[in-house]
Amino acid sequence: MSEPPRARVWPAAALAVGTLLWFIPTIGQPLTEPIADALKGLGLLADGTDDDAAWFMATLVLRWAATVLLLVFVLTVERRPPSSLGLDKPHRKHLLVAASLALPMTMAGVGLHLLVTGGQPEQSTQTDQIIASLSTVQLAHLIINAAVVEELFFRGFLIERVIDLTGRPALAAAAAYAIFVGSHIPGSGWASSLTVVAVGALLPTILYARTRNLFPCIVAHTVGNAPLLLSG
């Protein structure tokens, strides 16, 4: 017998809250200037930092804030354990698989991108301009932030809550994958999103679907984005 509709209300509400929290960095854009000033006052951002870099570092702070709020929501409002987000002790072999396959997947995505674009340089995207303005230390922060925040929201939270809602793990993984890739299109453009991002996102999505553990996904995301450090 199928669940009565009311049994599905709470997962839907949780997804709505998670979606709202994901957009905190967008909603909180008026706060980026005072956050950047605070970072400079704390010595975490040089006074002469490029305006685009300062804005982006402040946006990353808002992403950390959204992550903390998501954890608070899960632990205190949903009253669920960290394992409900995939935050559990990982198996070493899963971490090794993640670390060893991430760079080849990134290279495959780059190769597909070159094939699709014919090796011709694309018009600079918003993401390209931001990366070009960041120092090596700031790029490292970006890589860590992306790995933790995006994996927590798109893999740990989104997949688990869609499973709660539908009871279908494969559908949950596919939906999270599509939403993750699509979320990159406004900043990175269609070509990069449907090649580099789409190929790179396959590994953490499959890893989470197989292990239901977030840490291999974070490792894969970090290693896969590590070449960005060469831009610093």
Rank of each mutant, 00 (worst) to 15 (best):
V137S: 07
P104T: 02
A102D: 12
I159R: 12
R80Y: 04
G118I: 03
V199H: 08
V219Y: 03
A176C: 06
T32Q: 15
P121A: 06
G189H: 10
V219K: 03
G118H: 01
V9R: 12
L152C: 03
Q138V: 02
P216S: 09
A58T: 12
S183L: 15
L39E: 00
Q120C: 00
V77F: 10
G28L: 06
T195D: 06
F154N: 14
V181T: 08
A174H: 02
G48K: 00
I24E: 04
V74L: 01
L214R: 09
D50R: 03
W10G: 05
P11A: 05
T49I: 00
S84H: 14
G232D: 09
F153K: 10
L114I: 04
A173K: 04
P82Q: 10
L142P: 10
L115Q: 02
L75Y: 08
A140C: 07
A98V: 09
K93D: 15
V197Q: 12
R210W: 12
T59N: 15
L202W: 03
L171I: 03
I24F: 14
G109R: 03
L142N: 12
L165N: 05
P121T: 01
L20S: 10
G109L: 05
V199E: 05
L229Q: 01
V61P: 08
I24G: 14
F215A: 09
V74T: 02
T106A: 12
F153N: 08
D47P: 01
V148E: 05
Q129I: 15
L42D: 07
G86M: 06
L71R: 01
P104I: 00
A98E: 15
T195Y: 10
A198W: 06
R92D: 09
M107W: 11
R63E: 11
G156P: 10
D47F: 00
P169R: 15
A66Y: 01
R6V: 12
V181S: 06
V72E: 03
T59R: 15
P227S: 07
R161I: 06
A226N: 01
S83P: 07
L230H: 11
F180A: 11
S84T: 14
L114F: 04
P25R: 02
P5S: 11
L115P: 00
P82K: 08
I24S: 08
A102I: 01
G48H: 00
N213Q: 08
A147M: 10
R212C: 08
P81H: 14
L152E: 05
T222F: 13
L62H: 04
